[in-house]
Design a protein around this nucleic acid. Structure first.
Length: 228
DNA sequence: CGCCAGGTGGGAT
DNA sequence: ATCCCACATGGC
């Protein structure tokens, strides 16, 4: 899939959109040096929560709103009126729930000073926050803190099920194990970069070919798939 | 119009 | 543990 789609430039960082080295949406292909500041770390944390069961397109708009109102920080979010936050993040859907999730996460980050110290919250720590489940936790660890946690989402399960790798009713942790237990990892890429690309490639592949109604002509993994 | 999108938590069984 | 549901907007 890497040969077919190329590097994906994840995680997109809106606050860098358009500057040299970044495309208009904040993707940075082949550059694994992000995030580079506490602000960028927190933007990824926020994006990971906002995109829960929601298209990234809707989230981009919200991130932009938050940024323009100087609300893209744990301090600002934790100190704001929930109603104001809900209005700002409206386009990302589930705005009442996500308001609560953002405030909870902000309070946790403030209390533990993760941004100041650059210390990782750790998986258990993130999962203890109301509003952060396994996928959001792993997304934050992998893309915001640069730790090798493989992200499993609905696309991952769909692809692996169609390829015949899993039955489809496995738990999050079981699917994750399918990847982390593998020994065949290209040496050219550090593990964290490999996981970075792998998840992003699965998302791209699921959007282009492995949709709910699959588009098999031209699929890069057609040969090893039951469909097609 | 209907269906889907880079899930999570709560409640019943 | 395992199912079922609420949560909500915007794009196609």
């Amino acid at each position: 899939m890497y040969a077919f789609y190329g590097p994906r430039g994840w995680w997109p960082v809106r606050t860098k959109a358009g500057i040299p080295g970044f495309d208009s949406r904040g993707y940075h292909k082949g550059d694994y040096s992000l995030p580079q500041s506490p602000g960028e770390v927190f933007e990824i944390v926020t994006g990971a929560i906002l995109t829960q069961n929601t298209s990234w397109k809707n989230v981009e708009k919200t991130i932009e709103e938050l940024k323009q109102k100087d609300m893209l920080s744990p301090h600002a979010l934790a100190g704001s009126d929930p109603g104001d936050i809900a209005r700002l993040i409206r386009s990302s859907g589930y705005y009442n729930q996500k308001t609560k999730k953002l405030i909870n996460t902000s309070l946790y980050f403030l209390k533990e000073k993760f941004l100041e110290t650059s210390l990782s919250p750790g998986r258990t720590g993130l999962l203890s926050v109301w509003g952060i489940g396994p996928e959001t936790a792993d997304s934050i660890l992998l893309y915001a803190f640069g730790e090798p946690f493989f992200v499993v989402d609905a696309y991952t399960k769909r692809l692996l099920t169609r390829l015949g790798c899993i039955s489809g009713n496995e738990s999050y942790d079981e699917v994750q194990k399918y990847f982390t237990a593998r020994k065949k990892i290209p040496e050219a890429l550090p593990l964290v970069h490999y996981y970075n690309e792998y998840h992003a490639l699965i998302v791209e592949h699921a959007k282009q070919h492995c949709r709910k109604n699959p588009i098999c002509p031209g699929c890069p993994v057609k040969r090893i798939c039951r469909y097609g």
